[in-house]
Amino acid sequence: MSRKRSRVDAVEAPARQDVESLEEALGVTVDPELLVLALTHRSFAHEAGGIPTNERLEFLGDSVLGLIVTEYLYRNNPGVPEGDLARMRAATVSQRALAQVARDLGLGAFILLGRGELVTGGREKDSILSDTVEALIGATYLGHGLEPTRAMVERLVGHLLGQAEHLGAGLDWKTSLQELAAARSLGSPVYTVTGTGPDHARTFTAVVSFDGIEAGSGVGSSKKLAEQNAAENAYARLDAGDVGAAV
């Protein structure tokens, strides 16, 4: 397998070909076959006749990332209870956090996407970006083992690991909103989610309310992300006093 993506030459692939620059940003050289696989989104694979996708690598990378981050937080935060460690880990490996890592790498330009995803801005979707980061971690682990992968992960998310203690609650906006609502005796937030668009490019809108009164809304490429964005919006409004008096 050459670095010119010979495996998919017959298929239109409007993605950057200079993968060496991506590897330089990652700080590690990835096996060419695994690198192409890590960058192959299911939308492209479907249009290319059913070639393998990056989803298995993503599955592996998710577990490897979780192990590395969990061990780092455990070793570097002695005395911190399990619940707080779990929040700190969630902040570090959240879809939003990993998508920002991908943007810092310029990763979106390298991902092999189908025409439908290209038209709907797939290169900037948090879900696609974060999944591809995990796939790259999986590919690195298969090619180099744990320790080189650990070094790469700590480079990529080091700034998040350093801030995890402070970001833990903030990146889990649904939990933060629940806690703020309880403190103000507002009851439990209720989320209503609707989706629009084709299956490969769905957009979800979430509305969060208390006792039937809307407190915030958010949009995302998944139900989970839309709910998190709605919770963040509601939290800001509650904190500013825009909602509490009406509920």
Rank of each mutant, 00 (worst) to 15 (best):
R5P: 02
R5E: 13
S6H: 12
S6I: 11
V8E: 13
D9H: 08
D9G: 03
E12L: 15
A13K: 15
A13R: 15
P14N: 14
A15C: 12
Q17Y: 04
D18K: 10
V19P: 05
E24Q: 13
V28Q: 02
T29P: 01
D31G: 01
L34I: 04
V36K: 05
L37C: 04
L37D: 04
T40D: 13
H41C: 04
R42P: 00
R42E: 10
R42K: 08
A45N: 10
G50C: 12
P52R: 03
N54W: 06
N54Y: 01
R56N: 11
R56W: 09
L57V: 01
L57F: 09
F59S: 14
G61F: 09
D62T: 15
S63M: 07
S63C: 04
S63H: 14
S63L: 12
L65E: 07
L65A: 08
V69I: 15
T70P: 01
E71W: 01
Y72C: 09
Y72M: 01
P78Q: 02
G79N: 12
E82S: 02
G83Q: 04
D84N: 02
A86F: 02
M88P: 04
A91D: 08
Q95F: 00
L98E: 12
A99W: 03
A99R: 04
A99Q: 09
V101H: 06
V101R: 11
L105T: 02
G106I: 05
G108H: 12
G114L: 03
G114R: 11
G121Q: 10
G122S: 01
R123T: 14
K125P: 04
D126T: 11
I128H: 07
L129F: 05
S130E: 13
D131M: 13
V133I: 12
V133E: 04
A135I: 04
A135C: 02
G143Q: 03
P148D: 07
P148F: 08
T149Y: 05
T149S: 05
R150W: 02
A151T: 14
M152D: 00
M152P: 01
E154F: 03
R155A: 06
G158Y: 10
G158Q: 05
G158N: 08
H159P: 02
L161P: 06
Q163F: 06
E165A: 14
G168Q: 05
A169W: 11
L171C: 05
L171K: 13
D172V: 01
Q178T: 10
L180G: 10
L180C: 07
S185E: 13
L186P: 10
G187Q: 13
S188V: 07
P189N: 08
Y191F: 15
Y191L: 12
G197M: 09
G197S: 08
G197N: 11
P198W: 09
D199G: 06
T203G: 07
A206D: 15
V207M: 15
S209Y: 10
D211V: 00
G212Y: 09
I213K: 13
A215R: 06
S217H: 14
G218K: 05
G218M: 03
V219P: 04
G220P: 12
S221K: 04
K224H: 07
A226Q: 05
N229H: 15
A230I: 06
A231V: 08
A240Y: 07
A246E: 02
A246D: 07
V247I: 11
